[in-house]
Amino acid sequence: MAVNTTWVFVEEQDGKPAAISLELLTKARTFGGELGAILLGAGSEDLYAELGRYGAAKVYHLTPDERLPTAAAAAAIAELVGTHEPDLLLFGLTSTDRDVAGRLSARLGKPVISNAVEIGVDGDDVTVTNEIFGGAQLVDTVFRAGAPFIVVARPKSFPAEPGAGDGATPELIPVELPAVGQAGVAVVTGRHVEQQEGPQLEEAAIVVSAGRGLGSVDKLAVVEELAGLLGAAVGATRAIVDADWVPYSRQVGQTGKTVKPDVYIACGLSGAMQHLVGMKDSKMIIAINKDEEAPIFGVCDLGIVGDVHKVLPKLVEALKAR
């Protein structure tokens, strides 16, 4: 049977498809067969066309209202799965995708494999690769239950590239969000979008990240200044996000963003496994840490055993002097 139909879940974010969904559409094109997108959002001609350029032949469009749409979206997709019998359902490791994928898995009684960094199709077998131990080892898992196979993939595991040709505008299929009783009663009453200065964390050529080693929130100023001088984005460890020094949108790692910049500068962060998986594939890694045993030194190109409070101000001065 192989994989005849793959669907990619697409959350609309800020009027555009979430970046991960374009990565997944790109990957899904390599499996052959028909490609569909399940769009959750207001939708627009531009957006449908974009999905078409990335290979979607059909767009199943779910339009949310003020309710938290995750339970109803899972129910709607389960219904579509019953009718169209897709083989593979792809989601990204984002808040909404995880919610829908988890609920869908339970609703269909099908397993979901999360944290995928590679997806392989070989005849009837779908194999998913995960990184464990901070990326030191790779685990391959094959689905044994029948299709559909549900996979939640880590961002930046696949490049996002439009398909060859113009990409015909996909067929648009509006789908009702069904009533799901108590599961559907939650409502979204407010939405806070963080204003970000400078380049986007996921897209920046340079990322300067800070950890608990900075000591206190006011010491972040030097990291921000350095980032400003380099045109870099500021990243963070979960430790300082939880401590409320910076918003979650800055978090790099397992449960934050995955970045692959040209240069990653790690300042006063230990390099915990969960941080490493989010940045270890950067082209060049420079680390400053006063503890020579810090795990971050195991993955860096240049490691400086030293005090961030000494090295960073000098670096800033030297860059300013250029």
Partner: peptide
């Protein structure tokens, strides 16, 4: 009734160790 099975565990390609200097 577990619907998935680990078929292999392998080391990831290693990053070559970088230069470590004392400030």
């Amino acid at each position: 009734d577990t619907g998935q099975q680990i078929i292999s565990i392998r080391p990831a390609p290693e990053r070559t160790a970088g230069e470590i200097i004392e400030d």
